[in-house]
Amino acid sequence: MIRLDNLSLSVSSFPMGPLCLTVGEGDFFVLMGPTGAGKTLLLEAIAGLVPVADGRIFIGARDVTRLPPERREVGIVYQDQSLFPHLTVRENIRYGLRFKNRTGPGTEALLDRLVEELRIGHLLERRPLHLSGGERQRVALVRALAVQPSLLLLDEPLSALDPAFREEMGGLLRRIRNSTGATFFMVTHDFTEALALGNRGAVMNRGRLEQVGEVRDIFLRPASPFVARFVGMKNLFRARFQGPHALVRNLRMRLPRPQGRESGKVAFRPEHVEIWPESARAPHPNLFSGTIAECLDHGFTCRLTVSVDSVRLTAHLPAREAHRMGLCAGRRVTVAVPPEAIHVI
């Protein structure tokens, strides 16, 4: 659907690219990265809103590199929704129809369906100024989808919403994508959002793509320390390898398979670290005794930092379980790290 071929931009303070990326037809692709990584810039380049320095952009079979935005069949929804403030909601969502020659019963039926599906029927005569954030976001989506773009670009569509709305809007995005069959390309700095919505994705850092692939795969097997940190792999350590084992300072950890090289990095997710009572003993290859250094209650989960010798391991576990075990700072516990959870970078 989208193919970026050695794409370079030179708009911002840092040079971007060359980037190569392929997004499949009907994908819900998420472009992740910290603020300032260049995500929105790449989005605008695909939409034709910033000039391309070098390389090519293909959408479908067309080379759109030199096409103006109005001829790319690409919709864009910004974080701030960018509704036209001088037009009513109805005028906003019908804005694109006259340019795209989309008239007739088919278009009207689609509009009616979108209006109903996104529940904005009661807002049609209002001005954007008088809408809530969630309402504005839904109007912006209908406006973009009304012209039936083959590709919809979403720039952090959820980040401006209240947390309560965010989940609902996420579900709506998924449903809309399924019902329209359009390809969605979403930018976000929030990895959990990406995990909840996207099937494929990429992580961007300082104008470069660090990793491209299945979102779950990026989540579990980050390709670089940067990606590991970005996806919340709190346990990231330099290690020396001895056959099927990794030595993190004095800790000897069993790996899923032997490593051919001498040193590297090991990483594992805090949710995969198990906390057992101190007395627990079981046949497990990676059992360590440690002391809880810190216990942070996040409501649904608890984040524990456990000192094992000089290594600090981070574990996330359900708050209920942490309370049941009476975990608090200073308590001695046994920590288990399943070998299959350990990812070598």
């Binding site: 605008e44 809103l49 960018s82 036209f84 804005y95 340019f99 012209v147």
Partner: peptide, 24 residues
Amino acid sequence: RLENVSRSLGASMAETFLRITLPL
């Protein structure tokens, strides 16, 4: 961004200027 959205909805630069920028 308002102009960007207008362009992506199919309006040319001149149409965007007349329908969005100038009225605002």
